[in-house]
Amino acid sequence: MVVARELRRRYGETDALRGIGFEVGRGELFGIIGPDGAGKTTLFRVLATLLLADSGSATIDGLDVARDYAALRRRLGYMPGRFSLYQDLTVEENLEFFATVFGATIEANYALVADIYRQLEPFKKRRAGALSGGMKQKLALCCALIHKPELLLLDEPTTGVDPVSRKEFWDMLGRLNGQGITILVSTPYMDEAGLCDRIALMQGGSFLDVDRPAGIVAKYPHALWAVRASRMSGLLGDLRDKAGVLSCFAFGDSHHVATDGSLGPAELERYLASRGHESIEIGRIEPGIEDCFMDLAGAGEGR
């Protein structure tokens, strides 16, 4: 469905895209995961035919994003980073406007958005500007969907939205994907990675890795331990001082410690006890996407 080859794009001094290449299959839910400034938005704009790459190529369904932009624009559903709604129009007016502009009607494609729009219906006379973040996001999705696109490009649809609304949003994406719509979505939240079929981890204009979430986790090269003790703040520094510890970061209520083969849990516990820590708990854990991202992004930084 989407084929990108060696996409490069500069903005003044910064390389927003440094040779991005990947493929997305029809019907896939593909996530691009990375922090602000990774180049996600630039990539989405290139794919949405809004920006020309300096070099490289990209095709969607065989159509070139640079040359065939007019034909492509009919087939894409694009939701830019900021919810691009008219704040002074009501929920209903927004949807109606975008439907008409894309040459569709709400009635014809209602089935597609019904699931989402039903939640907005009680507020349909309310101006979009007066909706909460979660509701705006749902309305923007409806607007992007209303012309029944074959490919949905969603640029950071969940940024700044609370966890509950985020969860609901991903449930909706899952259902849409189930109806055969190919979805390309970006997010800065690593915990959303597991909800995609495949993901690309992105930083500094490059993809660090592209794989199924499980595949990325399986490639994690180190041993990873969750460490807890009665006094958490001093623990971080002590762990980083220990030879054999590759990185150590706080993860919720424990610290994730990556070690090389030489350091076992027994030795680690002895070491921490010698530093005066009490009620030490050390358990082997499976890495999450966030562990993998940090390892790929800057190995050794967490010392």
């Binding site: 990375g34 602000d36 800065p188 690593m190 992004a297």
Partner: peptide, 8 residues
């Protein structure tokens, strides 16, 4: 910390 990479 919105939008900041995990290590940062």
């Amino acid at each position: 910390t919105g939008g900041v990479d995990p290590a940062t």
